[in-house]
Amino acid sequence: MSEAIVKLHYDIDAEDFTTAGEASSGVKKTLTRLGVNHEVIKRVAIAMYEAEINAVIHANGGTADVEITPERVTVIIADNGPGIPDLDQAMTPGWSTATNLVREMGFGAGMGLPNMKRYTDEMYVDSKVGVGTKVTLIVNMNRQGA
């Protein structure tokens, strides 16, 4: 990689569901430009996209902060939404609170958090009901330790 540390910040706008994914798309482009391993890019892109969609669906948007170092990519998606009352339940594949409208858009299958976990090396969910949710996604540049 040509640069030691790259930091990116995005506001995730929930006004228009059609733009959801622009932050993830921007990060994918940056990682590609930096010459990051193809598999790492895909894992970051998918996990971040799921988190971004969640922020739009459940929390009326939020923010994305991304740090790229030679060792890893860290993505923090934070929102001021309703929070997750039961994290274990939310991590269960197929479990969802999404509305029919969201389902019509192709989401709400209850695979968001499980997919994030699958594609990352580390994932932390910090959520308080009525306050918001912060999801931290870490993908190592080197798959060892995954």
């Binding site: 798309s25 994918k28 193809h38 969609i53 192709g106």
Partner: peptide, 14 residues
């Protein structure tokens, strides 16, 4: 499905 999220999903998944 024919909404923009299908294209976004395809983009992320290559």
């Amino acid at each position: 499905l024919v909404n923009p999220q299908v294209v976004r999903t395809a983009e992320m998944m290559d």
